[in-house]
């Protein structure tokens, strides 16, 4: 059973500066966007705060533009808006498909891009009621000193479970961040750490303002897609998810970029896969890619579904998507 929502104050700033100031005044506050993750975690007693700073009234966070300089998505844009945006779907297939795959239609109406990128990590020993966690002596991520997934380890293994991050990463997205020291930009891939208890590289008082994606290619030189495995066909977070982008280079070679989620404490890009040459057997290359994924991914027993299955599933999904997208490039 879920606990009642604790008492808190709701602050509703109208500008980014007001939000930064509000956080500086009460550093124990938490930023709130759609609330589809944070409110649930608060009801489970996983969030200590007496003040929420609601970012949904800030108009700058609602910007959404797709032009020659690329795609800019404000952090407050809802997932439904992305799902329904034809230009994004045409030029950035993986981003549209990832948004389709998040939660259910009701959540997508309110859940935001920034919220999904800042999703808390998940684990079957963490996403439980207070009563359940207390009976299990809590865990390393919150109030405990042992990781029940890897008891001899020194860090939390909870899995990052956002679907959107890998899709943005394969398109080379950068995040724009606002905070007490002003604005900064960084590659999205650098935002995350491999530590389930501290996976976000945001400094105190910072929040994501927007995501910037380089121009999509409408001449069918880049194709991308997203796929995930989960138990229920909707709502569920990914047991493993993968985004793949295939690019036809000027030399005729095909570059394949893939990024994973749901398996580690951070979403990450698969490294070390060379472009497929014109004289190369593509099937052998896809098999190599699958092996590379199996080597770099490290799912832990953070869900009831075994880690070995998730390793094999994400590797097979990557191979399948890469094959399909390469064919679409022809």
């Amino acid at each position: 059973m879920t606990e009642a929502l604790p008492e808190f104050t709701l602050d509703r700033p109208e500008t980014i500066d007001q939000a930064v100031t509000a956080m500086a005044k009460r550093p124990s506050s938490r930023f709130l966007a759609g609330g589809t993750d944070l409110i649930v975690n608060m009801r489970r007693g996983l969030v200590d705060t007496d003040c929420l700073i609601d970012l949904t009234g800030i108009s700058e966070l609602q910007q959404l533009s797709d032009g020659k300089s690329g795609l800019t998505i404000g952090a407050g844009v809802t997932l439904r808006e992305i799902c329904e945006h034809r230009d994004i779907r045409r030029s950035y297939g993986a981003i549209g498909e990832a948004c389709d795959a998040i939660a259910g239609p009701g959540h997508r109406s309110v859940a935001t891009v920034g919220g999904n990128l800042c999703l808390d990590t998940r684990c079957m020993y963490y996403n439980q009621s207070h009563w359940w966690r207390k009976a299990n002596d809590f865990c390393l991520k919150y109030k405990g000193d042992t990781c029940h997934v890897a008891p001899t380890g020194k860090r939390c293994r909870a899995a990052f479970s956002g679907d959107l991050a890998p899709a943005l990463m394969v398109h080379g997205a950068e995040v724009e961040i606002a905070g007490p020291d002003g604005r900064r930009r960084m590659p999205l891939a650098d935002l995350y750490h491999e530590d389930g208890a501290n996976h976000l590289g945001l400094k105190s008082g910072e929040f994501i303002v927007a995501v910037h994606v380089p121009p999509g290619d409408t001449q069918r030189m880049v194709r991308s897609a997203y796929a995930k495995v989960r138990i229920r066909g909707a709502i569920d977070f990914p047991l493993a998810g993968v985004a793949v982008a295939c690019t036809r280079l000027a030399s005729g070679e095909v570059r394949i970029t893939s990024a994973l989620t749901g398996t580690n404490s951070r979403p990450f890009l698969i490294e070390g896969f060379d472009p497929i040459g014109l004289d190369q057997d593509p099937d052998a290359a896809f098999t190599n890619l699958a092996k590379l994924v199996q080597k770099q991914v490290s799912p832990q027993r953070t869900s009831t579904i075994g880690s070995h299955y998730r390793r094999l599933a994400v590797s097979a999904l990557t191979q399948r998507l890469a094959k399909r997208l390469t064919l679409e490039l022809e």
Binding site: T2, T36, I39, V40, R43, S109, V110
Partner: peptide
Amino acid sequence: CDGGECGACTVLVDGHPRPACITLAAS
């Protein structure tokens, strides 16, 4: 379910379905 997973609390907010059990009234 009390956690946004079952949809029994679905209402329309500005014409779009939303789980009322994870939505703040003030918002």
